[in-house]
């Protein structure tokens, strides 16, 4: 499912809204989630999961071509942990 398919599904669910509202709503939700992570804040969606940043300390890496040592700076990478309901629903065995 792509973002545009998600927007189309939401437009069907909310027939009282103009199609542009579903489009704008999805944009606002995604932007708010990205902004939140960019500030270092967590996102917690009950029944879906949580997003947080994982810290990667600076390290010495190597250029695989030349073998030269390179300093890799610290970074923060987004991490998602599925919530209980999502975990149970995707796992048909569980």
């Amino acid at each position: 499912m792509t973002k545009s398919e998600l927007i189309a599904q939401l437009a069907v669910r909310f027939p009282q809204l103009v199609a542009k509202d579903a489009d704008f709503a999805v944009k606002v939700i995604i932007e708010a989630m990205a902004d939140s992570l960019a500030k270092g804040d967590r996102i917690e969606i009950r029944g879906f999961g949580s997003f947080a940043l994982n810290y990667r300390p600076p390290r010495v890496g190597r250029n695989p071509k030349s073998g030269d040592k390179v300093q890799v700076p610290e970074k923060h990478v987004p991490h998602f942990k599925a919530g209980k309901e999502l975990r149970e629903r995707v796992d048909e065995m569980g």
Partner: peptide, 15 residues
């Protein structure tokens, strides 16, 4: 309802 539906549609697709 829209926020709930946004995450529910994603859950349904993954399901």
């Amino acid at each position: 309802d829209m926020v709930e539906a946004f995450f529910e549609e994603i859950r349904m697709a993954l399901e």
